[in-house]
């Protein structure tokens, strides 16, 4: 499968389904059916690096909502972990959808890495130490430990505008880069 920026999203990814907090299946393509979508795939729901990513993203959620960009966060633990994640990360009051993909089908469709090296390799462990020093705690392993995350920005036309594939814990897309992509995508629409 090829995921290339400025190209349509592959059908395998569009047809992948994730689960909402009630356990209902949601086709991933629904996220970008009527507006641009920012999809943030975290590792497991207890991941420190993902907590840092959410902390960086949280203050920008209102801006993205004002730009009519849907933000969806996808993890891979069970629904109980999903609810705890939303509470721990204080996401309940924001315009953000949180899903889970326990089968990892959407992760595979997005071609994200599944590797032990990204979890316990030297750079990953150094990253975990840095995260701990910055105060990001882990409540435990709430999902697949070896599955790495990533970030996609998909326009309402179904075109991939941004793609980041995390190699290890803490290797997150820079939020300023993602916001730049959102601004450019929405400005392009306004120009058209």
């Amino acid at each position: 499968m090829i995921l290339a920026v400025d190209q349509p999203v592959p059908s395998a990814l569009a047809h992948a389904t994730v689960l909402d907090a009630t356990g209902a299946e949601v086709p991933l393509a629904r996220c970008w059916a009527d507006r641009d979508a920012l999809l943030v795939f975290v590792r497991h729901f207890g991941c420190r690096g993902c907590s840092e990513h959410v902390a960086a993203l949280r203050p920008r959620l209102d801006e993205l909502a004002a730009l009519d960009v849907r933000v969806a966060l996808i993890g891979n633990g069970n629904a109980q972990y999903l609810a705890a994640f939303v509470e721990r990360e204080q996401l309940a009051d924001y315009a953000i959808d949180v899903f889970t993909d326990p089968t990892l089908a959407a992760y595979r469709a997005a071609d994200f890495e599944r590797t032990w090296l990204g979890t316990i390799g030297p750079r990953a462990l150094a990253g975990v130490a840095g995260l701990a020093l910055r105060g990001f705690a882990s409540p435990g392993i709430h999902g697949d430990l070896t599955q790495q995350g990533g970030t996609l920005y998909i326009t309402r036309a179904g075109v991939l505008a941004f793609y980041h594939r995390s190699a290890r814990v803490g290797d997150n897309a820079h939020v300023v880069d993602v916001v730049d992509v959102a601004l450019a995508a929405r400005a392009t629409e306004q120009l058209a």
Partner: peptide
């Protein structure tokens, strides 16, 4: 980004 985004959101 915040300032330009606010401007763009108003235009949209």
């Amino acid at each position: 980004q915040q300032v330009l985004g606010r401007d763009l959101a108003a235009k949209l």
